[in-house]
Design a protein around this nucleic acid. Structure first.
Lengths: 112, 112
DNA sequence: TGATTAATTAACCATGTGGTATATTAAATG
DNA sequence: CATTTAATATACCACATGGTTAATTAATCA
């Protein structure tokens, strides 16, 4: 899988709030599928599918512990995403609209 | 649109190599739809659709100049993406696999 | 062995995505 | 006014996505 394909699957995996919430959960440490499913009003197979998508993107790895399939976060694809995004950093730090936002914030702050 | 929805549409928009290439093109400056379409072996309506997706994600804005619809890059959603990704930075900079990669690179460099 | 628990698989459904070809709108120009 | 150019709209297609329920696998435990 080349870099572009990696970005395809990583971005696609991240384009869903349930999957981002699962990653946030795993940032706290390893968790089972049931533990990951608990906060959601959604069937277990649905969560299982989301986990599969994250796994295919390389964002998590699944272990084996008796009947449990503990999931762990693998942040490497996030670094790939961050590196890609960084290409554009110079743009958003120099654009007028962003500058304007900063000036407005300064104004609001001084008004308090 | 709340922050999560913004991330949904931004990540979804970025999950496609054609659309990322269009953004790369626009990083060089404003361009028309035809100019953006030129590098691709794809119909104009297809490109038009991609542009619509980018526009809906707030990543570009379309102006009007006679028959032309010049597109300009709007990097703000990329900042939202970068900020989200940054939450996880501490993870990928501390993981063993990444450390190992760095050590290997150091070794290779010292071998040259 | 039988029952329970954890998780995945299979089959299905509605909707979205990425592409096509053709038709249409809108503005500029001969 | 007719033609050309730029771009979008429409209608269609194959396939992916996000969800469901029901069935199945795999391991533990009584």
């Amino acid at each position: 899988m080349d870099k572009s394909d990696q970005l395809d699957v990583a971005f696609a995996a991240l384009a869903n709030p349930t999957r981002r919430a699962i990653l946030a959960h795993l940032a706290q440490g390893e968790a089972t599928v049931n533990a990951l499913a608990e906060p959601f009003d959604m069937s277990l197979p649905a969560i299982s599918k989301h986990i599969r998508v994250l796994e295919n993107a390389g964002l998590i790895t699944r272990g084996r512990d008796a009947q449990f399939r503990p999931c762990t976060l693998n942040a490497r694809p996030l670094k790939v995403v961050a590196d890609w995004t960084d290409q554009y950093r110079h743009i958003w730090v120099t654009r007028f609209d962003v500058m304007n936002e900063i000036l407005l914030t300064m104004k609001e702050t001084s008004d308090e």
